[in-house]
Design a protein around this nucleic acid. Structure first.
Lengths: 212, 212
DNA sequence: CGGTGGATGTGAGCATCGATTACATCTCTA
DNA sequence: TAGAGATGTAATCGATGCTCACATCCACCG
């Protein structure tokens, strides 16, 4: 019964009081509004809890309206996933840019940034790594190049770069996921705890990376 | 229409030709059959693709029948998750039992076993680590004790045990998830490739763990 | 040996959700 | 200013989770 008051409403001139959008169409910009609403809904209830009817309801629009902008639910999800992936990549890039250029600093900075993102936006983090929504092959190429150079200079142990990259990636991703999925002792993880754990992990990795 | 031939069947003496179960009730053991069928269905279509009606259909039973054995779908999922977690734990335990008792061998053996399980049963692996279905806090206590002992004997670097445990756990879990979620270059991962990657990761970790 | 009760399964049905279709309405532009 | 295309609506379908009243079957007890 919370669907709609009455199926036969005399239909007044349509109380569309949407915000901005000077040249507003019917809604303003339903497509972007849907993406934003989906972003919020995912943050609250996860990707599984997302449903188009609720989104439409929140935006004061009929359940069929979203289909004017997205072929189906999956298309919306993909758009939202792309949006999230973009933000995630930006966060990592900025962290790398602000850190010293040596490989170990880069590793640690991007690792800390990744884990922080996971702690702050768990549901969004999960979306970024949901199979089929995004490809992460070759994400860390800059770090790889820096690492190869450092190895040539003897600053880093002569282990295969592939192995080092893989290990670092696995450790950081594993830590993020363990936090996001609540599989670590102590239940919920505070940002400070997350930082400490990231530091511990990167320290141990660093020991393996240093020349002996 | 593949549900049932006709809604008004004269109902012959009920063609229940179920397998074993000498003192068979109506079905035999619908509860266990549901768990088994769910196991198979999850392996095929993942946890999201699981639905009770299909399970009932496969077992030749009405859609309401499962509710005689499980309060709701979630209860079934929890039972299946417990079953999977049990198998997973058994695999890890056996791998540890068959490996040499030193901490590094134990790490590698359980790591290899975990990654192999992930490669072989990706959907089941995902279920094991689905939030809310199972708790993994304190899973690796035996390894922790071995590690502490080894450290006292000077076989392992004097890094905080917590940090080493965490790093190893993160790396192995991260590798498993990256494989399961198809986020590694080259798409699908063969068991041989998985073993090689696990070896690479544990090697790098081992370097960090060895005393200098 | 027969009846009774609890466990098990059925059939019908409700609500929600994704998706499609025919139709209405609005905005822009020629 | 009138048509065309973009945008939104109403109605509806099929799948799914879940509930309820009823049927059926087995075990046990007098």
């Amino acid at each position: 019964m919370p669907v709609r008051p009455a199926p036969s409403k005399a239909r007044p001139p349509r109380p569309r009081v949407r915000k901005k959008a000077a040249s507003a169409y019917h809604h303003g910009d339903l497509r972007q509004a849907l993406v934003d609403a989906a972003l919020a809904a995912i943050a609250e209830g996860g990707l599984e809890g997302l449903n188009l009817r609720d989104l439409a309801r929140r935006l004061g629009v009929s359940p069929a309206a979203p289909y004017r902008h997205f072929a189906d639910k999956d298309a919306l999800v993909r758009a939202v996933a792309a949006d999230i992936a973009h933000r995630y990549a930006a966060v990592l890039a900025q962290a790398a840019a602000e850190a010293p250029p040596d490989p170990l600093s880069q590793f640690r900075a991007t690792g800390v940034a990744a884990v922080r993102f996971a702690v702050r936006h768990p549901a969004h983090f999960r979306v970024v790594y949901t199979p089929g929504l995004h490809d992460h092959r070759g994400d860390a190429d800059p770090t790889r190049q820096a690492l190869t150079a450092a190895q040539a200079a003897g600053v880093v142990a002569p282990i295969p770069v592939d192995a080092m990259m893989l290990t670092a990636q696995c450790a950081i991703y594993g830590l993020s996921r363990l936090i996001v999925d609540g599989q670590l002792p102590g239940g919920a993880v505070t940002p400070a705890q997350a930082d400490a754990m990231t530091r511990a992990v990167t320290d141990v990795l660093g020991l393996g990376f240093l020349p002996r």
